[in-house]
């Protein structure tokens, strides 16, 4: 088998492992769905100022961002830290698998999850909240793809900061949640607010803006190039950091 076939072989087993471990799927799939069903129905249908989306429709898009980040950054970061701690990564390093095939398998499996998540959340939005199918489907696809790359890169990078697998979920979510709060994932934030100015330094807000742009119509909608470029900077920074400092072996052994 060549490296690509081996990556596809890995995808199968990564998928099995993923769906048998309920914790990961809860954050990625359950949380956005439950949030939409509980909060979305009481969110009201007034239009947000400066947008063609209603409040509840905005939340659908924002929850897709939330789930995507859980599927990429949180899942990859926690999975790798735990496997590193258990010595699974070290063992893998002793087999002939190419590094690219191993990560290809992990990220391929994440891509499947993101496609399923997108279909699920958009379907709930369209059925429950009259969300229009993205007016700019290509922009939506590009934004989602840039999101997967960025948040997978950051998931790889965060493993460098963690020395103990048991602490991984706490550290990873401890970084993620404050940023998600100020980035307008749970409620819309005005672009002129202080929170928004702070959040603009981080990639989450740009992911929200990028995806909202793909679901809106009218002036200013479509591909949000500036937001995607800022995300790409985070992706490159995360990747460079991860490639330089990634550890395959547990510490203190």
């Amino acid at each position: 088998m060549n490296d690509v076939e081996i990556a596809l072989h890995q995808v199968r087993y990564e998928q099995k492992t993923y769906w048998r471990n309920p914790m990961a799927a809860v954050f990625t799939f359950m949380f956005p769905v439950v949030f939409l069903l509980v909060v979305g129905t009481s969110a009201g249908s007034s239009t947000i100022s400066g947008s063609t989306l209603r409040y509840d429709q905005y939340l659908v898009v924002a929850m897709l961002v939330f789930g995507l980040i859980a599927a990429c950054y949180t899942n990859l970061g926690v999975t790798l830290c735990i496997r590193r701690d258990q010595g699974v990564l070290k063992r893998m390093r002793g087999t002939p698998i190419a590094t690219a095939s191993y990560f290809g398998g992990l990220i391929g499996s994440i891509l499947i999850n993101v496609v399923l998540l997108t279909a699920l959340v958009v379907a709930i939005g369209m059925v429950g909240y009259h969300l229009h199918f993205p007016y700019h489907p290509l922009a939506a696809a590009v934004t989602l793809l840039v999101g997967v790359v960025t948040f997978c890169a950051l998931g790889l990078a965060v493993t460098v900061l963690i020395s103990n697998g048991e602490a991984a979920p706490a550290v990873i979510n401890g970084i993620y949640f404050p940023v998600v709060f100020i980035s307008g994932v749970f409620y819309p934030i005005s672009n002129s607010s202080v929170l928004s100015k702070i959040a603009d330094y981080f990639p989450v807000r740009h992911m929200v803006k990028g995806l909202v742009g793909a679901f809106e119509n009218g002036p200013g909608s479509g591909l949000q190039v500036r937001d995607l470029l800022i995300m790409a900077l985070w992706a490159i920074g995360g990747l460079v950091f991860a490639v330089r400092r990634f550890r395959w072996e547990p510490r203190h052994r």
């Binding site: 099995k16 492992t17 471990n21 258990q86 699974v88 063992r91 002793g94 547990p250």
Partner: peptide, 18 residues
């Protein structure tokens, strides 16, 4: 070389869910 060598490390390292 890695495909001709088998390694068992001191810590048992297997994925739990398979």
């Amino acid at each position: 070389l890695r495909s001709r060598v088998g390694i068992v490390l001191q810590e048992c390292a297997v994925d739990q869910y398979l």
